[in-house]
């Protein structure tokens, strides 16, 4: 499981002085930079997240726009994955997790009673840290979502969706002759692209990626990054990453988190060349993280 699902132990490690987390967070001051965009696809406003009694996210504001990649960076346990998992309510599966504040998709509150998590997750897809293809054939992996939601009218439709999704994920040429083989027989990078294809097949509007390359080698990583750039044409994308280079390469905007607080957000170029907050600068220059 993702190490950042429960960020509390690392929060405690970071807490070197006598201060409580709340005091440290308060000392960080307001978010530097502009978290809002003109035409947001998803919007996060003043969101707090608690695991039981401990708070993991403190009053975060952030927008995600269409045709844009937003990257979320920060040291381990800074809450970036937690926030990402709130965006399609994956945190619902953790019983002790509580979310307050407003998160919207196309202006609709995704935590309201009327919003259905199943429908939300069909519209907001997610790619996980470790490639997790189902132990089924490649075809079945991609066809899984459309079948669930009944997106195809007939078998030919489904074939179309599978082939298109595999093409969009840039893996079609590698697997077109072995669609019947198990998804787990592919290499790590291929598996991750298969998972992306699986997500695309549900025709989502937003794609969330949780450190999608952390388990891959550099060549596979390069391919995925290329793919992310292409996908930007059709989807709004949010990506959590540990690698600053990756954030710089694939994203248009970058958000820096520290101890559950959004410290600085802005154009990727600006953040990396001219960080305004001291912590951001320290992190980017590699003093910690």
């Amino acid at each position: 499981m993702n190490e950042e699902v429960n960020p509390l132990p690392s929060l405690e490690q970071d807490q070197t002085s006598e201060q409580t987390i709340e005091e440290i967070v308060a000392s960080l001051g307001d978010t530097v930079g502009q978290p809002r965009v003109d035409d947001p696809k998803m919007s996060v406003s003043n969101v707090d997240v608690f695991y039981g009694k401990k708070q993991a996210i403190f009053g975060v504001d952030l927008d995600i726009a269409n045709n844009e990649v937003v990257s979320m960076i920060g040291p381990s346990g800074c809450g970036k994955s937690t926030l990402l998992r709130c965006l399609n309510r994956m945190n619902d599966t953790i019983p002790i997790c509580r979310v307050s504040g407003e998160l919207t998709l196309d202006g609709e509150d995704i935590y309201s009673k009327d919003t259905d998590p199943v429908l939300l997750r069909a519209r907001v897809g997610m790619v996980f840290q470790k490639p997790n293809p189902f132990p089924k054939s490649i075809y079945e992996n991609v066809a899984y979502g459309p079948r669930l939601h009944g997106l195809n009218r007939n078998k030919a439709d489904l074939d179309d969706i599978v082939v298109n999704s595999l093409k969009k994920a840039g893996i079609y040429n590698e697997v077109k002759n072995r669609l019947d083989e198990s998804g787990t027989s592919l290499s790590g990078g291929q598996q991750q692209r298969l998972c992306i294809a699986r997500t695309i097949a549900c025709s989502p509007e937003v794609i969330l990626m949780d450190e999608p390359c952390s388990a891959l080698d550099p060549i596979a990583t390069a391919k995925i990054e290329e793919l992310i750039d292409e996908l930007r044409e059709n989807y709004a994308i949010a990506i959590v990453t540990h690698s600053m280079q990756q954030a710089a390469r694939v994203s248009q905007r970058t958000a820096y988190f520290h101890l559950g607080k959004l410290v600085e957000v802005g154009d990727t170029d600006t953040i990396f060349t001219n960080p305004r907050h001291e912590l951001t600068e320290n992190y980017i220059t590699g003093r910690f993280g």
């Binding site: 259905d116 199943v118 429908l119 069909a122 939601h149 009944g150 997106l151 025709s203 509007e205």
Partner: peptide, 21 residues
């Protein structure tokens, strides 16, 4: 095409939700 597809997905999923639940 994209916009149409989006609409399609939402509608289709919403239609089947009751049965699935």
């Amino acid at each position: 095409m994209n916009a149409q597809e989006e609409l399609n997905t939402t509608e289709v999923v919403r239609g089947s939700l009751k049965r699935r639940y």
